Computed example of a mutant assay.
Amino acid sequence: MDLLHTLKTRYATKAYDATRRIPEETVTQLLEALRYSPSSVNAQPWHFIVADDEAGKQRLAKATPDVGSLAYNRPKILQASHVVVLCARNELSEAYLTEVLNKEEQDGRYADKAAREWLAAARAGYVQQHIDAGDVAHWNQKQVYLAQGVLLLSAGLLGVDATPIEGFLPEAIAEEFDLESKGLTPLVMISLGYHSDKDGNARLPKSRLSAEVVFSKA
Rank of each mutant, 00 (worst) to 15 (best):
A80M: 08
S81W: 05
V83R: 04
V83L: 07
V83N: 06
V85I: 15
L86A: 04
A88K: 03
A88C: 08
A88Q: 04
R89T: 10
N90E: 14
L92Q: 09
S93H: 10
E94P: 00
Y96V: 13
Y96N: 11
Y96L: 09
E99R: 12
V100A: 03
V100S: 05
V100K: 11
K103Y: 03
E105W: 01
E105H: 03
Q106P: 00
G108N: 01
Y110D: 08
Y110H: 11
Y110V: 10
Y110K: 02
A111N: 06
A111P: 00
K113W: 00
A114L: 09
L119R: 14
A120Y: 07
A120K: 11
A121N: 14
A122T: 13
A122C: 00
A124V: 04
G125L: 07
G125K: 12
Y126A: 08
V127M: 06
H130G: 06
I131K: 15
D132C: 02
G134Y: 06
D135G: 07
V136T: 15
H138C: 04
H138A: 15
W139H: 09
Q141M: 14
Q141V: 09
K142F: 04
Q143L: 07
Q143M: 13
L146V: 15
A147G: 14
V150R: 08
V150A: 11
V150Q: 11
L152S: 05
L152Y: 02
L152D: 04
S154E: 04
A155S: 12
G156N: 06
G156K: 05
L157H: 04
L157C: 09
G159I: 09
V160K: 06
V160H: 04
V160M: 07
D161R: 08
D161W: 05
A162G: 03
T163E: 01
P164A: 15
G167C: 05
L169A: 13
L169Y: 02
L169P: 00
P170G: 08
P170T: 12
E171M: 03
E171W: 02
A172R: 12
I173V: 15
A174Q: 08
E175F: 01
E175K: 14
E175Q: 14
E175R: 14
E176G: 06
D178P: 00
D178Y: 01
D178S: 14
L179D: 04
E180D: 11
E180F: 00
L184G: 08
P186K: 05
P186D: 04
L187M: 03
V188D: 01
I190D: 01
L192A: 09
G193V: 10
G193Y: 08
Y194P: 01
H195Y: 10
H195F: 11
S196W: 01
G200P: 04
L204I: 08
S207Y: 05
S207M: 07
R208H: 10
